[in-house]
Amino acid sequence: MSHYPEVVEKIVQDYLQRVAIQLKRFPNSDQKELLKELGSHIYESYCAESDSEPVDRILEVLRKLGEPADVVAEKLHESLLSLKKLKKVPLSVLGGIVVGMFGLPLGFAGVAILLGGLGAMLGLVAAFFATATLLLVTGVTGMGLGLLRMLNPDLWDHLVAQGFIQFHGRIGQFFDLLSPATQGGILVFLFMAVAAAGLGMLWLSKRLLKGLRFLFDLMLDRAKSLFGRRRRRAFAGDPGWLKTPVSEAPSEEASISSSTSYSPIR
């Protein structure tokens, strides 16, 4: 049941629809809840604005409520924050591992393990790309040979006679039973799968590189913050400056007269 005159109802629905469009990326339950709440707010606010024409009243209500994009921007900001929080969990675990390594009593053992880990990681990346490239090249070459077998069997036979192409054992015997067109078709099909595997690996590599870059940045950041914290502790006279109540903080005159004052608030 509508609580408004028809034209006002239309304006309200239009506004809520615009909010709904902005909320598309959020879960359904969140969307419904916010829309229901905004609907309730609009009604209360509309009733409170009683000293003007219905259309003017509703427009004033919606002006005060804010543009749909502004309302949702706040929610978007919140969802980004929660994403950031989620990311911090694995970050903390990995950070803990790095810190643990540097905490080993063997001094530089942590650095050595870190470098070893990085080296192993780089080796894995190189092996991954080499395999992907090999699969792709093999697949494309095999498909070419398959097409050759289908389209130019004479040249194929010539290459076999010259020893450039060799099929031994059961595979050779099996292929001898088939017609050249079927042989070519099988080759194209098989090597297409190989090439697809290579392409798939290359496609995955984007994610792999992103993941590795993330890991590397993470380790670098944690190492920086760890050393930064130690350095600040070493140089700052009073590490508890943040906890000093304002009323007890030294006056500006005192800090000026000491001339060598170091303020961490810079």
């Binding site: 709440e37 707010h41 005060k64 409520l65 929610k75 919140e78």
Partner: peptide, 29 residues
């Protein structure tokens, strides 16, 4: 409070000007 009454309290004396809709995402959070 319910949403609208909360907004009225926050903006009542005019000291806090805000787009009223921004209160709801904060409440949800």
């Amino acid at each position: 409070h319910y949403g609208y009454s909360l907004v009225r309290v926050l903006t009542g004396d005019g000291s806090l000007l805000l787009k009223e809709g921004t209160v709801y995402p904060i409440l949800t959070r």
